[in-house]
Simulated assay, not measured.
Amino acid sequence: MIHNPKAYRTMPLGIVLRRAPGVTRWAKWVWTASAVMPGAGEADWRVLRTEGEVTEYHAATVPLELHGADTDAYLHELSAKQPSVYVILREATEGEAPLEVLTVTASPYEAQDYSDSGEEIIEKVPMPPALYALVTNFVEEFHEEEVFIKRKRDKKRIDLVEDGVGDPRIGKLEDVYASPAQQRRRMN
């Protein structure tokens, strides 16, 4: 892992969310992250375009942070068939906006961590060419392969010790491997 304080870059990304009609009677609208805009200015649910019942909003601008310790994750994402960033959303609890944009990441591992809670919505959005170039340059500059070092076994023989044999709490040799439930039945 790299602990170089200079191994850090940030870029503001505009998050574009698309609202489309739901396909079931239980979901009136379906929300998806449809694009990211590198270098975008501040926004607060500004309508970008409307086509029929589908509307796209510049919902928010959040910083994409690249850390030197995460270059393995970025490299993994860059080698994917479609390199993407992950937009992390949560249902809004206050205000008029239906969703809150928490963050955006280029690390599939960080996105997986967010999905573990089940409270966040993770949307995968293809990287635009400018963003792909930024992440690629960052990885080329700061990534260091970790050298695999195979550990050597010591010569100590651990199979010569029989745990539990000779223990005064164990009545018979076959009780060494008995489950606690079996031992309780024998005592009763």
Rank of each mutant, 00 (worst) to 15 (best):
W29E: 06
W29A: 07
W29L: 06
W29Q: 08
V30G: 01
V30F: 00
V30I: 05
V30T: 07
V30K: 03
W31Y: 13
W31D: 10
W31H: 11
T32P: 02
T32G: 05
T32S: 10
T32A: 08
A33F: 04
A33C: 13
S34A: 14
A35P: 02
A35W: 03
V36F: 02
V36G: 00
V36S: 01
M37I: 15
M37E: 13
M37A: 10
M37K: 11
M37Y: 06
P38A: 11
P38V: 08
P38I: 08
P38M: 11
P38C: 11
P38S: 11
P38H: 09
G39T: 13
A40N: 05
A40L: 06
A40H: 07
A40Q: 06
A40M: 05
G41R: 15
G41K: 15
G41A: 15
G41V: 12
G41F: 05
G41Y: 04
E42F: 07
E42M: 08
A43M: 08
A43R: 10
D44W: 14
D44T: 10
D44Y: 14
D44K: 15
W45F: 00
W45M: 00
R46Q: 15
R46W: 05
R46C: 09
R46F: 05
R46L: 14
V47H: 04
V47M: 09
V47T: 12
V47S: 09
L48W: 04
L48N: 09
R49M: 07
R49P: 00
T50K: 11
T50C: 10
T50S: 14
E51V: 01
E51H: 03
E51P: 00
E51S: 05
E53N: 10
E53K: 12
E53I: 01
E53Q: 13
E53W: 01
V54Y: 00
V54N: 01
T55R: 10
T55D: 07
T55L: 03
T55A: 06
T55W: 02
E56F: 03
E56L: 03
E56D: 15
E56R: 13
E56P: 05
E56W: 03
E56C: 09
Y57Q: 07
H58W: 07
H58G: 09
H58A: 14
H58V: 06
H58T: 08
H58D: 10
H58C: 08
A59Q: 02
A59S: 04
A60C: 06
A60V: 06
A60M: 09
